[in-house]
């Protein structure tokens, strides 16, 4: 599905734009989430085969000829892992944000650049 592919890339770019322009740490994390989501959509969409069903081989699928009737299960499997990992990273990022805010009472990324050169 070319549209979902386009959507995925679009989200990716939008997310990056957010990460690059937003000053608020939480918004940056959100940007990252959007990038992640975009990636996931891209992954899922490449597994799509037009006109085929989900790779769950219950009674609706002819078992003898199953491989001809279902979409690619691998991207689905991969995306699941990717999602979980994305979630994990996001959670950790948010914890960092919380911690940073607790320590410095600021959510602006500009306040965290004393390390340089």
């Amino acid at each position: 599905m070319i549209f979902s592919l386009i959507l995925g890339f679009l989200l990716l770019i939008i997310g990056l734009y957010g990460m690059l322009t937003q000053k608020n740490l939480i918004k940056i994390v959100i940007g990252f989430s959007i990038v992640d989501t975009g990636t996931h959509i891209i992954i899922v969409s490449i597994g799509y085969l037009s006109g085929k069903t989900a790779p769950i081989l219950d009674s609706t699928v002819d078992l003898a000829n199953a491989a001809k009737q279902v979409v690619d299960p691998i991207p689905s499997a991969l995306v699941l892992t990717a999602i979980v990992i994305g979630l994990a990273v996001t959670a950790l990022m948010l914890s960092f944000v919380i911690k940073l805010y607790q320590k410095n009472k600021s959510l602006s990324i500009d306040d965290y650049q004393e390390l340089k050169w």
Partner: peptide
């Protein structure tokens, strides 16, 4: 991008 029409060999093996 041209979408596959068939499952990859690996996927078929999985199925």
């Amino acid at each position: 991008f041209d979408f596959h029409k068939e499952l990859s060999k690996l996927s078929s093996q999985y199925v």
